[in-house]
């Protein structure tokens, strides 16, 4: 009886959704609404250089902020300081895991069943694809959706695959700690360089180039690569901490 009621309820809710999507009662059609009703003009036409022409992919030059998608412009340029705080949150959580689970002499935890042969060999072939996809996403953060956070997570998942596929595998944790510290310090150093050159912390001080090209958008690709390295090494550290145990 309960299931029948749940089914009917689901049908009604689904029907309502389809109806509301169909007759545009809730949302105005794209392009039809007038943003000036809701926001102030100065937010819509906001460009500190008073240059409010249309942005054309592959042609516009010398923009205020030149990544090809707006999320990147906000995450890595306008609110870059916020992002610095976010990766600090991730750093603190990985530090907490290391404090709880880390010991002096640690050994790789043995899984209950030794891994399949095909998984062991196939993971080595797939590792290259996954790692390269992660690096690609981090490097192309200013051109495609994605960027440092998913890219770093893909790097960490490639290492998780090796952990699952090989009972003896352990990373050189020391190297990852160094990489993580280097990425964090470099992020702050870039911010200080912006402070020194332009007067604001994390201000974009490199030429922004043509929108849509690989070498463009100033410091945004550099910052995204650093974020990718930091996120990747932190999550790998967390995985390593969970999959090792103290030696007996």
């Amino acid at each position: 009886m309960k299931q029948v009621l749940a089914f009917i309820f689901t049908l009604i809710v689904g029907g309502l959704m389809i109806l509301s999507l169909n007759n545009n009662a809730l949302f105005t059609e794209y392009g039809e609404n007038n943003p000036e009703d809701t926001y102030s003009d100065s937010y819509i036409d906001r460009d500190v250089r008073d240059n409010n022409d249309d942005v054309i992919y592959g042609e516009s030059e010398g923009l205020e902020s030149a990544p090809a998608n707006i999320v990147t412009a906000i995450v890595a340029d306008y609110r870059s300081f916020d992002t610095l705080g976010e990766i600090t949150v991730l750093f603190i959580s990985s530090l907490g895991v290391a404090l709880l689970l880390g010991g002096k002499k640690k050994e790789r935890m043995a899984l209950n069943y030794s891994p399949n042969f095909m998984l062991r060999i196939g993971s080595r072939a797939l590792f290259g694809i996954i790692l390269m996809t992660g690096v690609f996403m981090a490097v192309h953060g200013h051109l495609t959706p994605g960027g440092g956070f998913p890219g770093g997570t893909m790097i960490a998942s490639s290492l998780l695959l090796l952990y699952l596929a090989n009972d003896e595998f352990r990373t050189k944790v020391q190297g990852f700690k160094l990489l993580e510290s280097f990425a964090g310090i470099a992020y702050v150093a870039i911010g200080l360089a912006g402070l020194y050159i332009s007067g604001y912390f994390l201000e974009n001080f490199l030429p922004t180039g043509t929108i849509g090209e690989l070498f463009s958008a100033g410091i945004i690709p550099i910052i995204y690569v650093l974020i990718g390295l930091k996120v990747g090494s932190e999550i790998t550290g967390i995985i390593d901490n969970f999959l090792t145990e103290e030696a007996l």
């Binding site: 290259g128 790692l131 390269m132 996809t133 690609f136 192309h140 090209e213 690989l214 070498f215």
Partner: peptide, 15 residues
């Protein structure tokens, strides 16, 4: 191997 994977992902552009 890594270079071929990168080309497959990114396309054949000189940069």
């Amino acid at each position: 191997v890594l270079f071929v994977i990168y080309i497959l992902l990114a396309g054949w552009v000189i940069d």
